[in-house]
Write a protein that binds this DNA or RNA. Structure first.
Length: 499
RNA sequence: GCUCCGGUAGUCUAGUCCGGCCAAGGAUAUCGGCCUUUCGAGCCGACGACCCGGGUUCAAAUCCCGGCCGGAGCACCA
């Protein structure tokens, strides 16, 4: 029977089975595989700058799972490359996580743990699973890609240990000797073959431990060691780390450690978003950016400044989940979540950009009473205007309207437009139903204000005086968009979030 | 070049493991209507997708084979 025939038949016997039901779906994170009891997970940022939007994904997902299953979430600061450390970041990262509402149970800093790494390094040499090579880097790499060992790869453990002690003792200079973990030189994936575990950095001062150590662990060695030492059950990481996982598994196998469950999520591209710490650092130095929270940046501090709520970011990443597909970040979706949160609470005000002052003629006084929110009971902003009455309107908008048009100044009155003035035309709200255009305004005693946009533009204008009551809050400038309000150098400054 | 990982509307996601309640659900965006003293919110509607080709099957987004496309890694960075 064909599918169509089956459908026809079913319509006769049991039509209710063909009825479609509509349901709103609530998105939840899928269960973590391999959970038995509590979980132990970690965030592992390097302290090169404050956290950005991209990194918030791993923070949120780890946090969600630890909260769901119970257990422990470690913040492990990976500062084993002293050349890429911003000292302030040691404080900025926990601050950012706190803002994100991520619950950290314990902070571990890798530069406190050199002795632990050295200890395992020695063991591995004793086991014959690692070697010290004095072959120059490019030559070593060439041999490796050809599947061939360096001459010193097979030297006996005693000799390797001797070399290790010489490394630690400073008898080699930078690059003259490297500690390598053996894997399989015939491994079909060249990325998995023997990998460097420690390097020598003699003349670099580490911001936390100074010149105490000259032998620095590389990422794969310290990560594998710590993932084991912290007894992690699950590791979430970007799939750019997939080959690192395969590398690290060699250490787990050599030592017989229990492996965590590894989950690799996909690559996120963020168009038009500045995330690279090196670029930001440079931009701050040369004055291009105002700081780590410049509204053009993708740092969490910049988003916070603009009034993006941590819960919106959380919902966004939960929505995305941890699939291994590569995705494109959607500002629209993030903004939609943020609007959901912010809209019911944000007080409404008028902000007039490109301000043009016009006089309203033919009336002695007007009392304006505008609700602070269209549906929530948040009270009113009231202004008494006395003759001569002038208000600010948006110049570019005003100039586009034909003279003689009947306009509604929202929550104020109706006017007949002429070039640089307006004739009072009563206060009958029903003109709106007749199709009168509504524009906004602000009183003559408004405050100078500017709004900083995420694309770097700065709009100059006026905000109504009562905005002062909402400094530090996210407000909605009617017919314009949501912004978070600050006072900077005596001036009202809004950081634009979204429409 | 070698090795991995992926491919559902503009974007994100459900479904794929265990083929049939999928003539593919939800969100967002866009467009239209209603409502509203905001261009916000709300309500209603429209638009829009299973990468391609074979095979297995009564039945394929789902299983098999072959392509194609995208991404990542091949550092003495993380």
């Amino acid at each position: 029977m064909s599918v169509e025939a089956q459908h026809r038949e079913l319509e006769d016997i049991a039509p209710e089975l063909l009825e479609r039901k509509k349901k709103e779906e609530k998105k939840e994170l899928e269960d973590l595989p391999g959970v038995s009891g509590e979980v132990r997970m970690r965030l592992a940022p390097s302290p090169s700058g404050p956290m950005h939007l991209g990194q918030s994904r791993m923070a949120i997902l780890n946090d969600e799972y630890v909260k769901r299953y119970g257990g422990k979430l470690f913040l492990r600061i990976e500062d084993t490359n002293p050349q890429n450390i911003l000292p302030e970041a040691y404080d900025m990262i926990p601050e950012d996580l706190e803002w994100l509402e991520v619950k950290i149970h314990e902070i571990v800093i890798q530069s406190d743990r050199f002795e632990i790494y050295y200890n395992y390094a020695r063991k591995l040499l004793e086991m014959g699973k690692a070697y010290i090579t004095t072959v120059p880097a490019d030559e070593w790499r060439k041999l490796k890609n050809a599947g061939k060992p360096t001459p010193d790869r097979e030297l006996p453990p005693e000799e390797q240990l001797e070399r290790w002690d010489k490394m630690l003792g400073g008898e080699y200079d930078d690059g003259e000797a490297v500690y390598v973990v053996k894997t399989d030189l015939q491994h079909p994936n060249p990325a998995i073959r023997d990998w460097a575990g420690f390097r020598i950095l003699k003349d670099v001062e580490h911001p936390r431990v100074g010149n105490k150590y000259i032998v620095y662990p590389l990422m794969n060695f310290s990560v594998a060691t710590d993932d084991h030492e912290l007894q992690l059950t699950h590791v979430l990481r970007g799939k750019d780390h997939l080959n690192n996982t395969y590398r690290q598994e060699y250490m787990f196998n050599y030592f017989g450690w229990k492996k965590p469950v590894y989950i690799h999520y996909g690559w996120v591209t963020m168009r038009d978003t500045i995330l690279k710490t090196s670029l930001i650092k440079e931009g701050i130095r040369n004055g291009e950016f105002s700081g780590w929270d410049d509204p053009r940046l993708g740092t969490l501090r910049a988003l916070a400044k603009r009034g993006i709520q941590p819960q919106a970011i959380r919902r966004y990443w939960i929505d995305v989940g941890l699939k291994s597909v590569d995705i494109e970040f959607s500002w629209d979706n993030l903004y939609a979540y943020n609007r959901d949160i912010v809209d019911p609470k944000a007080r409404r005000y008028f902000f007039v950009w490109d301000p043009k002052k016009i006089e309203i003629k033919g009336v002695d006084s007007i009392h304006a009473k505008a609700p602070l929110h269209p549906s929530e009971e948040l009270g009113y902003r009231e202004y008494s205007l006395k003759s001569p009455i002038s208000v600010f309107v948006v110049g570019e908008e005003w100039n586009k309207i034909k003279d003689g048009t009947l306009l509604r100044l929202k929550d104020l009155c109706n006017v007949l437009k002429s070039e640089n003035a307006a004739e009072y035309a009563g206060n009958d709200v029903s003109v709106i139903r007749q199709g009168a255009k509504i524009i906004h305004w602000c009183p003559e005693n408004s405050l100078r204000a500017e709004v900083k946009m995420p694309d770097g533009r700065v709009l100059q204008g006026y905000a109504e005086p009562l905005i002062e009551k909402s400094i530090g809050e996210v407000v909605q400038f009617e017919r314009f968009g949501f912004a978070k309000i600050y006072r900077e150098d005596g001036k009202i400054v809004g950081y634009y979030a979204h429409r």
